[in-house]
Amino acid sequence: MTSIAIVNHERCVGCELCTRACGVTHAISLNLDKNWVEISEDLCWSCGACEKMCPFSAIALPFWAEPNKELRDTIYAQTRKPKKARVAVQNFEQEEDEEDVMAGSRSH
């Protein structure tokens, strides 16, 4: 039984937020004629990132599938800022500065 994410065609509005979430394997693509997303069975690693991203719950892993959390964290690490920088809003700017300095992206 396949364990890749399933798209609810009634609910999917083709906003492509899930295609952005699936930024590493690029398993999701928009069907231009139907305006709903489709998932490539070969490319989907069932990480569940799309499910988390979809605001309308139109895409979800089947209930028997365990999300590949390790892969999801790897994807987050590559596509998003480290979690630490998003935790405390009041220290957001200060922490961002520190990270930038650590990463050497800003010259002082």
Binding site: R11, V13, G14, C15, N35, P55, F56, A58
Partner: peptide, 13 residues
């Protein structure tokens, strides 16, 4: 709030 009706104005037809 996000759309309660599960609509996306960018693709509404």
């Amino acid at each position: 709030y996000g759309c309660g009706w599960y609509e996306y104005p960018g693709s509404m037809s």
